[in-house]
Amino acid sequence: MSDTTASRSLYISPKYTVDFWRDLVLDPENPTQDDWIKAIDVLRDRIEGRFIKPAQTLINVDKKRKPQTFGFAILALDCLVLETIEGFRQGVIDHKGRSGGLFASFLSNWQPFKDCVGEGVDAASKASEFYIQGRCALHHSGTTDKMTVGISGPMMRFENGQIFVNRTVFHSELEAEFKRYLAVLADPASVDQRKKFLLKMNPICGV
């Protein structure tokens, strides 16, 4: 991003601009806590404003419709959130060629997903199935033949080669996980996570 007046005034979230980010003093080794709280709020505003709230809006509107058909759109947005959270956790700037690994890492370490997979089942392999049938199928072709997205049952279940997703529970659990990540970043002792957060966020703001 070139350092022009236009680029500095660019909104990186509904509330915050590049200029706001660049004015923050963010040193993980010697944290200025007030500025870190502001930086974390930038990320919260960015992810909630661009993905989580739009998905929740679709859920709320869909409840009033018969039949409820917004499930794939909601799940597609949540897949973006999932990958983005893991990208920040790992400090990955460019996701090209790395999306599958980010999905596998997030899901195989996410307790709600592990609870759905069950004991004795390889969570990483199931995460790969979800990535292929969910994220890739929806984002690349807008359809999937091995996944059903609905509003009942557990967050997710794997059965006879099919994946069944309760999009309402999935969204709620994902939002809770994002809040847990923000809480980690708010802890001054989370030096490594703050460094990785900056690795990804700074290039977005041309830093």
Rank of each mutant, 00 (worst) to 15 (best):
Phe170His: 08
Val92Pro: 06
Ala76Arg: 12
Asp45Glu: 13
Phe113Arg: 11
His95Pro: 13
Leu102Thr: 05
Ile59Cys: 01
Leu26Cys: 08
His140Lys: 01
Arg44Val: 00
Ala104Thr: 06
Thr17Arg: 11
Gln90Leu: 09
Gln193Glu: 15
Ala55Phe: 04
Ala186Arg: 13
Ile204Pro: 02
Thr17Trp: 00
Pro67Lys: 03
Tyr131Trp: 14
Met201Phe: 15
Val18Phe: 03
Arg135Glu: 03
Asn30Gln: 12
Asn30Cys: 06
Ala127Gly: 09
Ile52Glu: 04
Asp34Thr: 14
Val18Thr: 11
Ile163Cys: 07
Asp3Val: 02
Ile93His: 09
Met147Glu: 03
Glu159Ile: 03
Arg157Glu: 07
Thr143Arg: 15
Lys15Ser: 13
Lys15Cys: 02
Phe170Val: 05
Pro203Gln: 08
Val184Asp: 09
Gly97Tyr: 06
Leu26Trp: 12
Ile37Lys: 14
Pro54Cys: 09
Ser125Arg: 03
Leu138Gly: 07
Ile74His: 06
Asp115Trp: 02
Gly142Tyr: 04
Gln193His: 14
Val184Tyr: 00
Cys136Asn: 06
Lys114Ser: 05
Leu43Asp: 00
Thr57Ala: 13
Ile93Met: 05
Pro203Phe: 05
Leu138Thr: 05
Ile12Leu: 14
Asp122Glu: 05
Met147Ile: 09
Ser190Arg: 08
Ala186Phe: 11
Leu198Met: 11
Leu107Ile: 05
Glu173Asp: 12
Ile12Tyr: 12
Phe20Arg: 11
Arg194Glu: 04
Ser105Val: 01
Lys195His: 11
Pro28Ser: 02
Asp45Cys: 10
Asp41Glu: 14
Cys116Lys: 01
Glu83Trp: 10
Thr148Ile: 15
Asp192Cys: 00
Ser99Lys: 10
Ser128Ile: 10
Leu10His: 14
Ala183Asp: 12
Asp62Lys: 00
Gly97Asp: 08
Leu43Asn: 06
Arg44Met: 04
Lys38Asp: 12
Phe158Asp: 00
Phe178Glu: 01
